[in-house]
Design a binder for these strands. Structure first.
Length: 755
DNA sequence: AAATAGCGCTTTTTT
DNA sequence: AGCGCTATTT
């Protein structure tokens, strides 16, 4: 047995060794919070607690997998893999699949991401004939999300006078009704959104004493990381699960709470103290990460917040250099200054690229840094932005997977019913959406009965639809016989997606193809890893049955990014990311950029004190990522929404006590009004046009079998002709782009050769 | 039906 | 500036 506790300080050690009863660990930035959590799990296992009796909830899946690796190393046993460790969403999604019939869902329910949710709201708006500008889908979704987070059903929502009054004032009186329909559509689609995963876990534990008892018995020890960022729904799940044993340990730092905007509540910290009056509290206040200057500066920043738990962060480290402030005249100069500073530091101190991080408030800011780093040949890596699973080609292919597994999944169906194009257009899908809403059935169920009830669709369309559902069914029959990879490969090709992407030979098209290949590779890897047995969490290595595509999709639907093995040349790079995604990370040299009023703090956060305080905590998080040296940067002008805007330095710079700062001179403010539009200089661009003479054919002469030529697609062969008069359509196979449907009255075809 | 042009909105942050 | 949605064109 390893005696790893020697690596902890007294307070950390006490927190780890106190295993029984309710515990709260308030852990300042860099004070070894993750260390306490991992050591605690390891300690429990060494004391003889079965790993599958431990539930550890983290904020990201990445944090969970890293922690698991460290625990396996600490206890020197792969048994530790059986700890139930992951995000709230992924752990409870797993449990909901096991218990699905108790809440009236099939176990193969789909998880909608926020894009699916938004597009569902859009189609509901269309149905209700509401203006999507008034009812901004993202804003409506946010309202719904807050309701669900507070465990309010549509009924509760419509009964709540305050919410209804708010929506009236905001000129969106039908928000509650949209919520109601939204929820009904999710049911029709056998789908849950992110908030539903937590909502229905609460329903499960509230209405099913057996299930509650089962999981209370199972999870003898519960640990929660980043407790300050949990919402009410998460709080209640934990409270219910811990009610029996009360072996619950929550770890957090109120000063680092940065997700109130999506429903997280510091109130949960106070609730904890009320729920468990005999709780023990441990405060980790010694910082091991940063220099004196950085810690003292951070303390001076957070003092400006009224709402906080008293805490005194200190360090034994060197005082280190002062914090540098870079002033730039423009956003592109800001990029240059930062890149040059990185270059100099790197050369003077013989440092790796990976020692540096550039942190910003919004993803859109990365561009100027990309450009200037590239100019200086400094390799970088951007995290966040559009993740792998948000790329169009990946979403398209995954939509086929989703539809194969759960054909009721309406968003998936609408995404691919005409992609690649097969002549089922918006006229048809609009009819289907309306009919499905009226009959309260999924579109898929309607399609299966098309021969009996044509829904006003014409014969040609019905045939195409039948062809489509036949194709999906041919995928479905292989679901439990084929391995995940074999079926995924089959679908990628049979769906026509690979062919469609291959026809695009631009660099973007090639990159799309690579992404699809990467997804298929990930599925192949997935097939090679052993399966977890769900009731105990044990890994069954003698299980020879193949892992299915369904299993893959279930594991993958809550991941934000593909965790591909980083190649060697990828590791030594400058990191660029938003501050939100930097939470929990540390870097020797940190640059916090774009420190300007209306950007950081964001212009959207200036209406209330609590919002500004959240921005300030965000700044605190950013500052405390730095180990050796912190540099701040701001620009006096910046392109925003396409035009040049004057900017003032952020109030946060002035809030740092000047003794810790190395200023470029006095901070000068622009004359008010603070935001002034400047007119950018427009270059004069002359356009040249060229037209080619083209003799089109009479639409009545086009026949099956003819060789024809199209202005864009080049030569092709007519496969079939349907319809009469002005609506006459031809299906043509082109060498360049494959099969296309063309309306002859518009598509100017030239006949080359008759059959 | 499919491609293109033009318009208006966006920018918080993420499971 | 870039994107997605709508209107227009083919």
């Amino acid at each position: 047995m390893k005696d790893f506790l020697k690596e902890l300080n007294d307070e950390q050690k006490a927190a780890v060794e106190t295993t029984e009863g309710p515990i709260m660990v308030i852990a300042g930035a860099g004070s070894g919070k993750t260390r306490v959590l991992t050591f605690k799990v390891a300690y429990l296992i060494q004391k003889g607690v079965e790993p599958f009796n431990i539930l550890a909830l983290t904020f990201t899946n990445k944090a969970a997998s890293e922690m698991k690796e460290r625990i396996i190393h600490l206890v020197d046993s792969t048994d530790a893999r059986n700890v139930w460790m992951g995000t709230f969403h992924s752990i409870f999604a797993k449990i909901l699949r096991i218990e699905s019939e108790k809440i009236g869902f099939p176990s193969n329910f789909t998880i909608y991401d926020s894009d699916d949710s938004k597009s569902l709201i859009k189609s509901i708006l269309k149905e209700l004939n509401l203006d999507p500008k008034t009812y901004n889908p993202a804003a409506v979704l946010h309202r719904i999300s807050l309701a669900k987070t507070n465990l309010m059903t549509p009924q509760d929502y419509n009964d709540d006078l305050e919410l209804v009054a708010y929506d009236q004032t905001a000129n969106k009186p039908l928000t509650g009704q949209i919520y109601q329909i939204y929820q009904a559509r999710l049911r029709q689609s056998s789908a849950m959104d992110f908030d539903d995963l937590l909502f229905f876990t609460n329903v499960l534990l509230r209405d099913n004493p057996d299930a509650l008892y089962k999981y209370q018995q199972k999870f003898k020890y519960i640990l929660v990381d980043e407790y300050q960022d949990t919402n009410f729904s998460q709080y209640l799940i934990i409270k219910r699960l811990a009610a029996n044993n009360e072996n619950i340990c929550v770890v957090g730092d109120d000063a680092q709470s940065i997700y109130a905007f999506r429903g997280a509540s510091i109130q949960n910290i106070f609730n904890f103290q009320k729920d468990y009056p005999d709780f023990r509290i441990f405060k980790l206040e010694q910082n091991y990460r940063s220099t004196q200057n950085i810690i003292k500066a951070a303390n001076s920043i957070i003092q400006n917040n009224k709402n906080q738990i008293r805490k005194d962060l200190w360090t034994n480290n060197d005082s280190g250099p002062k914090i540098t402030v870079l002033k730039a005249t423009s956003d592109s100069e800001e990029g240059m200054l930062v890149a040059h500073s990185i270059f100099e530091n790197k050369m003077n101190n013989q440092l790796e690229n990976s020692a540096f991080a550039i942190l910003y408030r919004t993803n859109a800011q990365s561009r100027s840094f990309e450009e200037s780093l590239r100019k200086l040949n400094i390799p970088y890596k951007i995290y966040g932005g559009l993740s792998f699973y948000k790329r169009k080609e990946i979403k398209d292919l995954i939509a086929y997977f989703r539809l194969t597994i759960n054909p009721k999944d309406q968003e998936a169906l609408l995404r691919v019913i005409n992609f690649p194009a097969r002549g089922i257009g918006s006229t048809t899908t609009d009819k289907l959406i309306v009919a499905a809403g009226e009959k309260e059935k999924s579109i898929w169920e309607l399609l299966l009965n098309l021969r009996n009830d044509s829904l006003g669709l014409n014969g040609g369309t019905i045939n195409k639809i039948i062809e489509f559902i036949t194709k999906i069914r041919s995928f479905q029959v292989q679901l439990h016989t084929q391995s995940a990879f074999d079926l995924a490969y089959y679908i990628a090709h049979q769906s026509g997606i690979v062919k469609d992407i291959k026809s695009d030979e631009t660099p973007e098209g090639i990159s799309k193809l690579e992404n699809v290949e990467e997804l298929l590779n990930a599925i192949r890897d997935f097939g090679d890893t052993p399966r977890m047995v769900q009731d105990t969490g044990e890994i069954k290595t003698d299980d020879n049955s193949v892992r299915t595509l369904e299993e893959f999709l279930m594991e993958v639907s809550l991941l934000t990014d593909l965790e591909s093995d980083e190649k060697k040349e990828d590791t030594n790079r400058v990191t660029m990311m938003t501050i939100h995604s930097a939470k929990g990370l540390e870097f020797p040299f940190v640059y916090i950029v774009g420190l300007e009023e209306d950007l950081f703090p964001s212009y959207l956060s200036q209406s209330s004190r609590s919002e500004i305080e959240e921005e300030r905590r965000l700044f605190y998080v950013a500052v405390t990522r730095a180990m050796k040296k912190l540099t701040l940067a701001y620009a006096q002008t910046r392109y925003r929404w396409g035009n040049l805007v004057m900017a003032n330095p952020s109030r946060f710079i002035e809030e740092i006590k000047s003794e810790f700062l190395d200023l470029p001179g006095k901070i000068v403010h622009n004359p008010s009004p603070s935001v002034k539009k400047l007119k950018p200089i427009q270059p004069n661009i002359q356009k040249t046009e060229s037209k080619i003479d083209f003799v089109e054919a009479d639409i009545n002469t086009v026949q099956t079998g003819m060789q024809v030529e199209h202005q864009q697609f080049g030569q092709g062969k007519v496969i079939s002709v349907e319809g009469n008069g002005p609506n006459k359509k031809a299906t043509v196979f082109f060498q360049s782009v494959g099969q296309k449907q063309l309306l002859l009255r518009f598509a100017k075809l030239r006949i080359i050769e008759q059959e």
